[in-house]
């Protein structure tokens, strides 16, 4: 499997009146062709900003990609011009957003919104694009696709809208699909259907998926490879079996322990004590040490580097030594 996208030392900062927020701080990751990469972390850890940086969808000002490279098909997207990036958006890389309720324009029909993307990127006229839009709607399992194509978003349920979003995102056969918490706003049965759909489409088209989520269940079901982020940095990276079987970073361990397990008689779920640090006032040393039960002296002084401890397993923690 070749590399499709690789992010190297990406730094995306937000320049606010109160100071600089390092939303993404020196993040490197790689997505291979046909692979699903799960990006996990709490709200505000920079996972969405990382994904939005790829397509330069960061509102600027205040946000800015300060340094780093995003190599996609041999090209550095951070240096791409507006018109170059527009040709990639919705075409080679497309996005599904979290809120299907608000992510579709309420005054245009579902069909119009899908057709728009098809006409823009593919050599088709409106009639052909309409046929293709109906096909896409059928593909994502929407019944009565040739009626739904003329429906407005408010006439569809949340799950249907998210299917329509997926149809829109997949319409131009993207190489990479960025799914930013695609199931968070949906109820559980619909979640499972949407995940099945995404997996099915991925197998059919060999599209890579960057799956952003805070739901470890979703990761276990979908991802091949997992990246755990905390406060703008990657703290652990491994393939999905390794992460669940053998988590190393205290934060990852904490996350896994705070997952509910069926048939376990427990009053409360475990949780990681404390809160995500204030992005304007990050602690010295390891960002996680105030909440870490295994914090040592060195953790308060020195920031750990992400290093390989096993084949394909990287962690940024002073507890572990790099293996060469």
């Amino acid at each position: 499997m070749g590399e499709l996208l690789s992010i190297k030392n990406l730094k995306t900062y937000f320049y606010t009146e109160d100071g600089v927020i390092k939303a993404v701080d020196d993040v490197s990751l790689t997505i291979r062709e046909g692979e699903t990469l799960g990006v996990v972390g709490e709200s505000g850890c920079g996972k969405s900003i990382t994904a939005m940086s790829i397509l330069k969808l960061i509102p600027n000002p205040p946000g800015k990609i300060v340094s780093g490279e995003i190599i996609f098909e041999g090209k550095d997207l951070t240096k791409a011009t507006d018109s170059e990036i527009r040709k990639i958006r919705g075409n080679k890389i497309s996005v599904i957003f979290q809120e299907p309720m608000t992510s579709l324009n309420p005054v245009f029909t579902i069909g119009d919104q899908i057709i728009e993307a098809i006409v823009l990127h593919q050599n088709m006229n409106r009639e052909q694009a309409r046929e293709k839009a109906i096909d896409m709607l059928k593909l994502v399992g929407i019944p009565r696709a040739n009626e739904v194509v003329d429906a407005y978003p408010h006439e569809l349920s949340g799950g249907m809208r998210q299917r329509a979003m997926i149809a829109m995102a997949m319409a131009c056969n993207p190489k990479l699909l960025i799914a930013d918490e695609p199931t968070t706003a949906l109820d559980v049965t619909i979640q499972a259907q949407i995940l099945d759909l995404m997996r099915e489409l991925k197998n059919k088209t060999n599209t890579s998926i960057m799956l952003i989520t805070h739901d470890l269940g979703v990761v276990a079901e979908m991802a091949d490879h997992v990246v755990v982020m905390y406060a703008g940095k990657i703290v652990e990276e491994a393939d999905v079996f390794e992460i669940f079987k053998n988590p190393l970073h205290p934060y990852t361990i904490g996350l896994l322990e705070s997952k509910p397990i069926l048939n376990q008689d427990k009053e409360r779920l475990n949780s990681i004590p404390g809160q995500v640090p204030n992005p304007l006032n990050m602690p010295e040393g390891c960002y996680f040490h105030p909440r870490c039960s295994k914090a040592m002296d060195i953790c308060r002084k020195e920031q750990p580097k992400l290093c390989s401890v096993k084949d394909g397993h990287k962690v940024a923690c002073h507890l572990y030594k790099e293996v060469k």
């Binding site: 919705g90 992510s103 324009n105 005054v107 245009f108 728009e116 990127h121």
Partner: peptide, 26 residues
């Protein structure tokens, strides 16, 4: 500031289309 404006941008539409079609219409 709405999400669907971000969606329109993510589709690869030109900024003019985003503003004068998707945003202005609303």
């Amino acid at each position: 500031r709405q999400d669907y404006i971000r969606t329109a941008r993510a589709k690869g539409l030109r900024e003019k289309v985003v503003i004068y079609k998707h945003a202005l219409r609303n």
